[in-house]
Simulated scan of single mutants.
Amino acid sequence: MKIDANSIRKIAHLARLEFDESSAEKMSRDMSQILDWVEQLNEIDTENVAPLTTMSSEVNDMREDKVGHQLDHESGLKNAPERDADYFRVPKVLE
């Protein structure tokens, strides 16, 4: 599939890319090669191939939850730079 210079300019505009006109021809060739490669993938018979759900072969280690030691409310607030009764006081971020 051949990508022309107008298509390159339109794609660059949509992707917010800037480039000089001298590199438009190289980009056109590169994108045409990519699309040709994708077209080759469409020719492959994938009728009996199961779809991938993940690229990793790792398995999650599922284990029982255990109740552990937790900070009490006062210990959690002990090192707070500023506090307001039972809560952390933080700077306002929205007006």
Results as ranks from 00 to 15, higher is better:
68 G>M: 03
26 K>R: 13
10 K>M: 14
72 D>W: 01
18 E>D: 09
41 L>A: 14
59 V>F: 05
30 D>P: 01
66 K>S: 03
24 A>R: 02
29 R>G: 01
45 D>F: 10
60 N>T: 10
16 R>W: 05
62 M>Q: 06
39 E>F: 03
8 I>A: 02
65 D>M: 13
10 K>N: 14
64 E>C: 02
10 K>L: 15
14 L>P: 01
14 L>C: 07
52 L>I: 03
38 V>F: 08
15 A>P: 00
42 N>K: 13
21 E>F: 10
44 I>H: 06
47 E>K: 09
76 G>C: 04
19 F>Y: 11
64 E>R: 05
39 E>M: 06
64 E>H: 05
7 S>A: 15
23 S>I: 11
42 N>H: 11
47 E>N: 04
31 M>L: 15
33 Q>L: 12
15 A>H: 01
67 V>K: 12
65 D>W: 11
67 V>C: 06
28 S>H: 06
33 Q>E: 13
62 M>P: 01
69 H>M: 14
46 T>Y: 12
56 S>G: 04
33 Q>W: 01
79 N>P: 00
41 L>D: 13
68 G>W: 02
50 A>E: 13
44 I>F: 06
24 A>I: 05
40 Q>V: 10
78 K>P: 00
33 Q>D: 13
23 S>K: 11
28 S>K: 11
74 E>M: 04
72 D>R: 01
78 K>S: 03
47 E>M: 07
46 T>M: 15
8 I>K: 00
19 F>D: 03
18 E>A: 08
76 G>V: 02
60 N>E: 13
49 V>H: 02
20 D>N: 14
41 L>Q: 13
43 E>R: 08
46 T>L: 15
40 Q>N: 14
58 E>I: 02
7 S>N: 11
11 I>D: 00
20 D>G: 12
32 S>L: 05
54 T>H: 04
37 W>A: 15
67 V>M: 12
63 R>L: 08
38 V>D: 04
56 S>N: 07
36 D>K: 10
52 L>A: 09
73 H>K: 05
78 K>E: 07
52 L>W: 03
60 N>Y: 09
21 E>A: 15
9 R>V: 02
40 Q>C: 08
38 V>Y: 08
29 R>T: 08
35 L>I: 14
18 E>T: 10
56 S>I: 08
18 E>L: 02
58 E>W: 00
32 S>A: 07
21 E>I: 14
22 S>V: 09
40 Q>G: 11
52 L>C: 04
47 E>R: 06
65 D>C: 06
44 I>C: 05
47 E>P: 01
69 H>A: 14
32 S>F: 03
29 R>L: 12
75 S>F: 00
69 H>C: 04
22 S>Y: 04
53 T>S: 12
73 H>W: 02
17 L>M: 14
10 K>A: 15
20 D>F: 03
72 D>G: 00
66 K>R: 09
48 N>L: 09
45 D>K: 10
39 E>C: 01
73 H>Q: 06
52 L>R: 06
43 E>T: 12
61 D>C: 05
42 N>I: 03
19 F>V: 02
16 R>H: 11
48 N>T: 07
38 V>S: 03
19 F>H: 07
24 A>P: 00
36 D>T: 12
33 Q>T: 06
74 E>D: 07
42 N>W: 05
51 P>R: 10
34 I>F: 14
36 D>A: 15
26 K>H: 14
65 D>Q: 08
32 S>E: 05
62 M>F: 13
